Simulated scan of single mutants.
Amino acid sequence: MALLHPESDLTMSLVTLGADILRQLHRQKVPVIVDDLLEGHLRGDRRRTPANFFAALDLLYSVGSVEREGYRIRLMTEVSQPGLFDQIASEGNNA
């Protein structure tokens, strides 16, 4: 879970690290090799670790913000995720 301790340093939270990864991807406009993205992430703050990077990347992938293309990561530009009640509404129209 991405919950923080009240006295935690927000710059090291998964959400903040994920936002930095999204910023890097937005600047590139093309899929980025994972190693290049990791290098940029580690340059941002010397306290960052590869484990932080992959945890933030997992979070971004799980919420549908990024997708993998081979060994490259790209920013999702269009989300085609159905709404919570879309299935229920379509079932009601078919009855």
Score class of each variant (00 low, 15 high):
residue 1 M to G: 09
residue 1 M to C: 05
residue 2 A to H: 10
residue 2 A to N: 04
residue 2 A to D: 09
residue 3 L to F: 15
residue 3 L to N: 14
residue 4 L to P: 00
residue 4 L to G: 02
residue 5 H to S: 13
residue 5 H to E: 13
residue 5 H to R: 12
residue 6 P to Q: 10
residue 6 P to C: 07
residue 7 E to M: 08
residue 8 S to I: 01
residue 8 S to F: 07
residue 9 D to L: 05
residue 9 D to W: 11
residue 9 D to Y: 10
residue 10 L to N: 03
residue 12 M to I: 10
residue 13 S to E: 08
residue 13 S to Q: 06
residue 14 L to H: 12
residue 14 L to D: 10
residue 14 L to M: 13
residue 14 L to V: 15
residue 15 V to T: 15
residue 15 V to L: 15
residue 16 T to H: 11
residue 16 T to S: 11
residue 16 T to G: 00
residue 16 T to F: 14
residue 17 L to H: 00
residue 17 L to N: 15
residue 18 G to N: 04
residue 19 A to G: 15
residue 19 A to V: 11
residue 21 I to K: 00
residue 23 R to L: 04
residue 24 Q to N: 01
residue 25 L to F: 04
residue 25 L to K: 02
residue 26 H to Y: 11
residue 26 H to K: 12
residue 26 H to I: 00
residue 28 Q to Y: 05
residue 28 Q to D: 06
residue 29 K to I: 06
residue 29 K to N: 05
residue 29 K to H: 13
residue 29 K to L: 09
residue 30 V to F: 11
residue 30 V to K: 15
residue 30 V to R: 12
residue 31 P to R: 12
residue 32 V to I: 06
residue 34 V to T: 09
residue 35 D to A: 07
residue 35 D to T: 04
residue 35 D to C: 01
residue 36 D to N: 08
residue 36 D to M: 05
residue 37 L to A: 03
residue 37 L to S: 02
residue 38 L to M: 09
residue 38 L to Y: 05
residue 40 G to H: 03
residue 40 G to M: 06
residue 41 H to Y: 08
residue 42 L to M: 12
residue 44 G to L: 12
residue 44 G to Y: 02
residue 45 D to F: 01
residue 46 R to A: 14
residue 47 R to P: 10
residue 47 R to D: 10
residue 48 R to L: 09
residue 48 R to C: 03
residue 51 A to P: 00
residue 51 A to R: 14
residue 51 A to Y: 02
residue 52 N to T: 10
residue 53 F to G: 00
residue 53 F to N: 00
residue 53 F to R: 03
residue 53 F to L: 02
residue 54 F to H: 12
